[in-house]
Simulated scan of single mutants.
Amino acid sequence: MGISGVGSVNSYIYNMKTGKLSTKDGLRDEFAEYFNDDLDGRDSHSLNGFDQQRKSGIKKMVSLMEEMGLGKNVLDTLQGDEIEITSEMADATTCIFSINGEKVFTVNAAVSYTPEEINVFGRLDHPYKTTHPTGYDPVRNRLSIGVGNVFSFGNGYKFTVERDRVRIDSYGKGTAEDYQNAGSFAFGLSALISFGDQQAFSALHRAAVSTPMMLEFLNELGVDTSREFIINDTRCEVRHGRIEEVGNKVGVPSSIHQKAVERYEKWMYLPLSKR
C-alpha cells in the first residue's frame, strides 16, 4: 500500500459476518491487518494518521449500519456477506465512505486552535484591521468599512467607527426604544467590521435585531446582498437570513481555520510509529 494522504482513494472487502477487512486481490495489506487488529499501528512506518482516521471511520460506519440502519438500501440488495467499502480523503479533515459504490457516510474531523487564535475570533474588542476604508466598489460588489467611517441616518444618532469600537453620538431626543435600536446597530456594525476583517466568529453577528439592520444598512450603501458580496477581506453571502462567509461551514474565519487545518494535516501525515 502507498502512503495515505489527501486525495487517497482505497477500496476493501468487508465481511459482515466476521467483521474482517481484506484486499480485493487477496494480497497482504498493512491497513487491512491494522483494521483487523493483526498489526499494531506503531509497528508500521507506512501507516499514519489518515489510516487511523479511516479505521475509526469504518468502525463507526459499521456500527451505524448495525444499530441505525445506515446504508439499508444498499444492504437490502446484498448477496452474500461481503460488501465493498471505499474511503476517499477529500481533504485533511474530511473522509467520505461508500458501500458498493454508493456514498453513505462522511467523517469530519475537528481541528484545534491555539489560544491566540481563539482569542482573535472569540472577541469583538480587538482593534479593527481596516483603517483606510474606501467605501463601496460596485464592480466587485465590495464594501470597505473601518476606522474613520461616520454614518448618520437622520434619526438623531451618529455612528463613528473608532479604533476598536463604534461610538454612538446622540444629537436629538430619542425614545428608549430608539436608544436600544442604536445600540443594536452599533453592535451589529462592530461585529460586521470584525467579521469582514477576519477577526470574528460568525455567530457574533447573528443577533435577531442587529442582523436585519446590517442587511438594510448594506443595501442602502449599494451592496447587492442577493448575490455574493465582499466586506473588507471576506467573501460573503446571505444564508437563511444570516451573513456568512462563502464556503465556510465552521464559522471560524477561514484565514484562521486554514492555518489550523494545515497544522492538522502535517500531524496526520506523521507515521503512527512516531506518535
Score class of each variant (00 low, 15 high):
V107F: 05
V107T: 05
N108L: 10
N108F: 12
A109E: 05
A109C: 09
T114M: 06
E117A: 13
N119V: 03
V120I: 15
G122H: 04
G122Y: 05
R123E: 06
L124D: 01
D125S: 14
P127H: 06
Y128D: 03
Y128L: 14
K129C: 12
P133S: 07
P133F: 13
T134L: 12
G135W: 10
Y136S: 10
D137G: 08
P138C: 11
P138I: 14
R140W: 04
R140T: 13
N141H: 10
N141C: 07
N141T: 15
R142M: 12
R142F: 07
L143W: 06
I145M: 12
N149I: 10
V150N: 02
F153A: 11
N155F: 12
N155W: 06
G156R: 04
T160Q: 02
V161D: 00
E162D: 11
Y171K: 05
Y171G: 14
K173H: 12
G174A: 11
T175H: 02
A176Q: 05
E177G: 11
D178L: 13
D178H: 13
Y179E: 13
Y179N: 07
A182M: 04
F185D: 00
F185K: 02
A186D: 00
A186Y: 01
S190W: 00
S190H: 01
S190E: 06
S194K: 08
F195C: 08
G196M: 01
Q199T: 11
A200K: 00
F201V: 02
